[in-house]
Simulated scan of single mutants.
Amino acid sequence: MAYEPYVTADYYTSVYKGSIVPEQDLEKALRQASRHVDSLTYNRIVGQGFSSLTEFQRDVIQEVVCQQADFEIENADEINTVLSSYSINSVSAQFGSSWNVFVEKGIAMKRDVYALLSQTGLCCRLAR
């Protein structure tokens, strides 16, 4: 059985009104964002089944997947770099945790988006 992302391309464009992810990359970006949400929720969504979640949890997860797909497309170069910092002509840049980016299990996510995902109750390491 193939993995199904929590958001369809139609949902992304019609409901979320997303336009950042190019159409040819949309399915892949939504699948990757869904997998990242699974990692950050300790695969609880897979274990319980998406349809078994409350309507609130499903809505939040779909919103987070869309926002994460946008974030990962917009910041692909920085996220996929192997460098943690660099400097060119007295201008330096560092990658990793910053005041607005959360990094957990190698997944970069905006802190406010992670806070939204946390409202589902699925991100707590100790939850069952």
Rank of each mutant, 00 (worst) to 15 (best):
A9P: 01
A9Q: 04
D10G: 08
Y11T: 01
Y12L: 08
Y12R: 03
T13V: 13
S14P: 00
V15E: 00
Y16R: 05
Y16E: 03
K17V: 04
V21I: 06
P22Q: 02
E23F: 02
E23A: 02
Q24G: 02
D25T: 04
D25Q: 07
D25P: 01
A29S: 09
R31Y: 02
Q32P: 05
Q32G: 02
Q32R: 14
A33F: 00
A33K: 12
S34I: 04
S34N: 06
S34C: 08
H36D: 15
H36I: 15
H36L: 14
V37I: 15
V37L: 06
V37A: 07
V37W: 01
D38N: 15
D38P: 09
D38C: 11
S39K: 13
L40K: 15
L40S: 07
T41F: 03
T41E: 00
T41R: 13
Y42G: 08
N43F: 15
N43G: 13
R44S: 01
I45W: 02
I45Q: 03
V46F: 15
V46T: 14
V46R: 15
Q48H: 10
G49L: 12
G49M: 12
S51L: 15
S52K: 12
T54W: 08
T54C: 12
T54G: 13
T54S: 15
E55Q: 13
E55N: 11
F56H: 14
Q57R: 05
R58I: 03
D59M: 11
I61E: 00
Q62C: 10
Q62S: 10
E63D: 14
V64E: 00
V65M: 13
V65H: 02
C66Y: 01
Q67T: 03
Q68W: 03
Q68C: 11
Q68F: 07
A69I: 09
A69Y: 00
A69N: 07
A69Q: 05
A69G: 12
E72P: 02
E72F: 06
E72D: 13
I73L: 10
E74A: 07
N75P: 00
A76G: 04
A76N: 04
A76Y: 06
D77G: 08
D77N: 09
E78C: 07
E78S: 12
I79E: 02
T81Y: 02
T81E: 04
T81K: 04
T81M: 03
V82S: 07
L83A: 06
S85R: 10
Y86P: 10
S87P: 01
I88Q: 06
I88R: 03
N89V: 04
N89G: 02
N89W: 05
S90E: 10
V91I: 15
V91F: 05
A93C: 07
Q94H: 05
Q94Y: 06
S97R: 13
S98R: 10
S98L: 05
S98P: 04
S98I: 09
W99P: 09
W99R: 09
N100H: 12
V101P: 03
F102L: 14
F102G: 07
V103L: 10
V103K: 14
E104S: 13
K105V: 12
G106H: 11
G106K: 08
K110N: 11
K110G: 09
R111K: 15
R111Y: 13
